[in-house]
């Protein structure tokens, strides 16, 4: 993960995806997101950090539109992709506009072969030639998938499935990719490999990525800008560099104390329970 924080890249101000003060309600009563605003900058990785149950995945689902199939609803605020409002649109229409979500826990089409997964990912394109080009492009980033192309994807290893999930998302030639915990359950070496490829994709394919991660060290190393979420709200926002230096982030997400040395989990645990970002 060569580059340090966002410092080396020129910070682009133009935003590709703007989430403006959205509220999400499940089953018409359960308020899950309470006024979340996020800017996803064009051609860079923006990260969304937070503990389990903070609302990160819900935010992604609200953006991609799959929330509706879970009886969730965006009740307030707007979501804009470029110039276009996409809140309230159906998931398959959002995908057509160039925004695609890579789900947590990989979720490949297990019964389909590797290549069939990619074909399904390219469904938005009518032209078969575009799909074939897309497959070649994905194989060039993930050569391992090419070796496995005719294998049933349910039997691929975890790392290969994550690569397939990302490759499948690329098949629609998106502008924005929502990446939900790509490091989940993978060996550190594989995680490093996958994050490296994601960085290359951002640079070479001009992708804008919203990356949800629990592994804050990892996410802040590749991201330009970051948000911290707690209990359905954004509680902290800043450039990746600033967030890395923030003492609260250090303490809660990176597990370091003021001096920079590693803190025992036992010491943080008690404190963490009482401390809240906003109280």
């Amino acid at each position: 993960m060569g580059t340090g924080a966002g410092g080396e890249r020129s910070p682009s101000v133009s935003s590709m995806l703007t989430i403006n003060n959205i509220e999400v309600v499940y089953d018409k009563v359960i308020l899950v997101l309470k006024g979340v605003s996020i800017d996803v900058r064009a051609g860079a990785i923006t990260t969304l950090l937070g503990a389990n149950g903070a609302g990160k995945t819900t935010t992604l689902k609200a953006i991609s539109g799959v929330l509706r199939s879970e009886r969730g609803e965006v009740t307030k605020g707007t979501i804009q992709l470029g110039e276009k409002r996409i809140d309230g649109m159906r998931a398959h229409d959002v995908a057509r506009l160039g925004l695609v979500q890579v789900f947590e826990g990989r979720r490949v089409f297990e019964q389909l072969t590797c290549e069939e997964n990619l074909i399904a990912g390219g469904h938005v394109h009518r032209d078969g030639a575009v799909v074939r080009q897309g497959i070649d492009m994905v194989y060039s980033y993930f050569p391992r998938l090419k070796e496995r192309r005719h294998q049933q994807s349910g039997y691929l290893s975890g790392g290969e499935q994550q690569m397939l999930a990302i490759g499948r998302a690329l098949m629609s030639r998106p502008q924005v990719v929502l990446l939900d915990e790509p490091s989940l359950g993978l060996a550190p070496m594989l995680v490093e490999e996958i994050f490296g490829i994601v960085q290359r994709l951002v640079q070479q394919e001009k992708l804008s990525v919203l990356l949800v991660e629990q592994n804050a060290t990892l996410a802040l190393a590749v991201a330009e800008h970051g948000y911290v979420m707690e209990n359905g709200r954004i509680v902290l926002e800043g450039s990746a560099q600033k967030l890395i230096e923030n003492s609260d982030i250090k303490e809660f997400y990176l597990g370091l104390n003021e001096g920079g040395s590693r803190k025992s989990y036992r010491d943080t645990k008690h404190y963490k329970r009482r401390k809240r970002w906003l109280s």
């Binding site: 398959h92 789900f103 089409f109 399904a120």
Partner: peptide, 9 residues
Amino acid sequence: QQVAQAMGI
């Protein structure tokens, strides 16, 4: 179904 939707199907 959910993933298929997100893929634009």
